[in-house]
Write a protein that binds this DNA or RNA. Structure first.
Length: 440
RNA sequence: GUGGGUGUAGCUCAGUUGGUUAGAGCGCCAGGUUGUGGUCCUGGAGGUCGAGGGUUCGAGACCCUCCACUCACCCCA
């Protein structure tokens, strides 16, 4: 058999993994800056626990099998349902409960660009409060995460299930399958354009008359600054009680986002629907301006009913989830990510067999000073050792030859400039420190 | 999951109507240069032509099946 990774699964080589880890470090520190602690849950859950949470489509994508004890198990499909289970399993959690979780999830989808069968999600969730402040916190965290990752050009599209409910009610669309079909069509509006949308609408939803169609298009194209969009939605949907509540909630949310962050990346977009069936309130997704075809890189919403399905008491909750693997592959495609193939800052050359003790002593001193150091693993030709530093992109090389050893110094070479100086260890560390890795 | 496209060296790709020993550029390794990488010169290694089967005197090329990648649909992080 040829050695080959499973379809939709992938290896990460050093360059990509260093980049991914740097992203994850940044994400973690933003999450913790909001006071969220980490948790972990198992990769496998009882299948029954995950069934019925993701809609029919999602359910087919579960990796599900019998374990060696004949238990019906499934690999987690997201981190939200396991969170709901965790809350139900542990009674003593302090509410409001905050947590973040960064972990892989598995979906048996057909792989495509930016779409994998195994990918890491970074979830933050706030459980126990149903308030615009909690909703706003998710958007603020999302904005801060993207800023920490130097992602500037993106659009955070925000909607509310209440707006969708008001819309379908006003248009006379029945709950259930018909509503689902309508929301799917609506979600495609931007992609297929208004003309095709009108055609599909007339074909699949004959009960919507001409006036209704115009009204619908007015609703979904009321885009602009959030405050303006909400004002026009008020006119169009305010007569519906769910619509009015949703609009007021989004208004409060936007006030808080405006105060704590920025509104210019946010668009109120009544056409986004979100597939996962557990959402009940605000929903959002994030598109990169340069690569919208990658789909959403960060999404989530409010799911007030999900935790209650396990906990026996209703616990409102809201969360947001970043897909690092998708974001990383998009950023790599844009080329906005400088990649390294080593964490090393300096390569210590082994000058000779006899001098290897000097090299090991120097490497230990560098590491003691906090400098990431590789030592060339044999006393090969100097040319080869310098070449290796060059190929790996290690910024400095250090050599202790016989004459340097006798003087207690070393030759420190800055590879990019070719500049080489004879200095002691402390001065070498200072120079390396000053140069930095250049990518932080 | 459905439909289309593409699979030739580590990478990007040539390879004529089926015809001898499958090529290039880049990269890699070695030497030119026994205390120093990047430029230059010389040499070298590296291919079950995605896999299996079929047609043929002869297949990288044609046919079938499978696998992978990719685009669209679908869905989503």
């Amino acid at each position: 058999m040829r050695p080959q990774a499973l379809r939709g699964f992938r290896d990460y080589l050093p360059e990509e993994m260093l980049a991914k880890d740097r992203m994850l470090d940044a994400v973690r520190s933003v999450f913790e800056s909001y006071g969220y602690p980490p948790v972990a849950t198992p990769a496998l859950e009882y299948a029954e626990l995950l069934l019925g949470k993701y809609g029919e489509e999602g359910e087919m994508l579960l990796y599900r099998f019998l374990d060696n004890g004949e238990r019906d198990v499934a690999m987690r499909y997201d981190l939200t349902v396991p969170l709901a289970r965790l809350i139900a399993s542990h009674g003593s959690l302090i509410m409001p409960f905050r947590r973040y979780q960064i972990a892989p999830v598995w979906r048996a989808e057909k792989p495509a660009k930016g779409r994998f069968r195994e990918f890491v999600q970074c979830d933050v969730d706030l459980v126990g409060v149903n308030d615009a402040s909690a909703d706003a916190e998710m958007l603020l965290i999302g904005q801060d995460v993207l800023r920490a990752l130097d992602v500037e050009k993106y659009r955070l599209r925000v909607n509310h299930r209440g707006i969708l409910r008001a819309m379908t009610r006003i248009l006379g669309i029945a709950d259930g399958a018909e509503e689902g079909a309508f929301l799917r069509l609506l979600d495609k509006l931007e992609k297929i354009g208004e003309e095709k949308f009108r055609g599909a609408l007339a074909k699949d939803f004959p009960q919507i008359d001409a006036a209704g169609t115009e009204r619908l298009l007015a609703i979904v194209s009321s885009g602009g600054a959030p405050a303006e969009t909400l004002a026009s939605l008020e006119v169009l949907l305010g007569s519906d009680p769910d619509g009015a509540l949703a609009i007021e909630r989004l208004r409060q949310t936007m006030e808080r986002v405006s105060a704590g962050g920025r509104l210019d990346t946010i668009v109120i977009d009544p056409s986004i629907a979100r597939g996962l069936s557990y959402y009940t309130g605000i929903i959002y997704e994030t598109f990169l301006e340069a690569l919208p075809e990658y789909g959403s890189v960060m999404s989530g919403g409010r799911y007030d009913g999900l935790v209650g399905m396990f906990a026996g008491r209703d616990l409102p909750a809201v969360g947001i989830s970043l897909g690092v693997d998708r974001l990383l592959s998009a950023l790599l495609e844009i080329g906005s990510f400088e990649s390294l193939s080593t964490p090393a800052e300096v390569l210590v050359v082994q000058f000779s067999e006899q001098g290897s003790a000097d090299a090991f002593r120097l490497a230990a001193q560098f590491r003691e000073a906090g400098v990431a150091t590789v030592i060339y693993p044999e006393a090969a030709k100097l040319k080869k050792q310098f070449q290796n530093a060059h190929n790996l992109g290690i910024p400095f090389t250090a050599v202790v030859g016989e004459s340097e050893a006798s003087r207690g110094t070393l030759q420190l070479k800055h590879m990019a400039s070719g500049e080489q100086v004879e200095v002691d260890v402390a001065a070498a560390v200072a120079r390396i420190r000053r140069a930095g890795r250049g990518t932080e």
